[in-house]
C-alpha cells in the first residue's frame, strides 16, 4: 500500500482552483521531484499534503502506517518573524518535538539527533548564534537540519537548494540521497531539472501538461515530445 495516495485533487484558494485533476501515489522509499513553473501550485500542493490547507475537492489518503509525526518539512518561506530571538540550536531542536509526545523536555537522544544533523549540514559551529543574524543560505541549512530532525519516514522539501551556493547544493543533494537510500521517502519541489532527473525516482510536473511518472518515462516524454527540450 502506498504511503500517500492523491485522487483527483483540486487545489486552490477561497474556492478558486489553481490545479485540478491531480492524481498520484508515493510509496515508501520513493524520491519524487515536483517541478513546474512559478505559480503553478507546487507549494499549494505541499501545504495541502501537510494538512495546512484543505483541498477544494478530491482525496488524500495516508497509508502504510504513515503518521503525521513521521513527517519532516522544509517550508519555502518561514512564517518566523524577522526579530525573533532564537538560537540555531533552539530552532533545530524544535524539529524533534514531534517524537516527544507529552514529555516536557528533550532527552539525550533527541539532543544528539539535533547535533548530528547540525554537523551533517556544517552548522554545528553556529549553534549558539542567533537565527535571525545568519545569512539566507545559513538560515536555509538550519531549517533543513530542523526538517531532518522531524523526518521519520517522509521528508517534504520546498525548494531546498534556494539560496545555497553550488558546493552546498551538491552536499545537500548527497545528504538527501543518503537519507533516501536509508529508507526515507523524499518529496522535493525543485526548479533544477537536471538534478531532478539525476536523483529522483519519480517526477510530477504540475501545470500543463500535468505529468506523473517515473524518471525514465518523464525523460522519454521530454525527448520524444514537442520540440525535444531534453538535455
Amino acid at each position: 500500500m502506498p504511503q500517500l495516495t492523491c485522487q483527483d485533487l483540486t487545489l486552490g484558494y477561497e474556492g478558486k482552483p489553481v490545479v485540478s485533476g491531480l492524481s498520484f501515489t508515493v510509496s515508501a522509499g520513493d524520491y519524487l521531484c515536483i517541478v513546474g513553473e512559478n505559480g503553478s501550485g507546487k507549494t499549494t500542493l505541499m501545504k495541502t499534503l501537510l494538512r495546512l490547507k484543505t483541498p477544494i475537492s478530491g482525496k488524500i489518503v495516508m497509508g502504510d502506517g504513515l503518521k503525521p509525526n513521521d513527517i519532516g518539512y522544509l517550508p519555502q518561506q518561514t512564517a518566523a518573524q524577522k526579530d525573533f530571538p532564537a538560537s540555531v540550536r533552539e530552532v533545530v531542536l524544535s524539529g524533534c518535538l514531534n517524537r516527544r509526545g507529552w514529555r516536557p523536555y528533550y532527552n539525550r537522544a533527541e539532543k544528539r539527533r539535533a547535533e548530528m544533523q547540525m554537523e551533517r549540514l556544517g552548522i554545528l559551529g553556529l549553534s549558539r548564534r542567533c537565527y535571525r543574524e545568519l545569512s539566507g543560505g545559513q538560515q536555509q541549512r538550519v531549517l533543513l537540519a530542523r526538517a531532518l530532525c522531524a523526518a521519520g519516514k517522509i521528508l517534504l522539501l520546498d525548494e531546498p537548494a534556494a539560496g545555497l551556493d553550488p558546493a552546498s547544493t551538491a552536499d545537500m543533494y548527497k545528504i538527501i540521497q543518503a537519507l533516501n537510500a536509508g529508507g526515507v521517502t523524499v518529496m522535493m519541489i525543485s526548479h533544477d531539472i537536471p538534478s531532478a532527473l539525476a536523483y529522483a525516482s519519480h517526477i510530477l510536473h504540475i501545470g500543463s501538461p500535468l505529468v506523473f511518472g517515473t524518471v525514465s518515462e518523464y525523460a522519454a516524454r521530454l525527448s520524444g515530445g514537442e520540440g525535444g527540450t531534453a538535455e
Binding site: L52, P68, L97
Partner: peptide
C-alpha cells in the same frame, strides 16, 4: 511561537 505551520505540519 517560532513557526506554527512547521509544528502543525510535522504532527504536533
Amino acid at each position: 511561537t517560532f513557526d506554527e505551520d512547521f509544528a502543525a505540519a510535522t504532527g504536533n
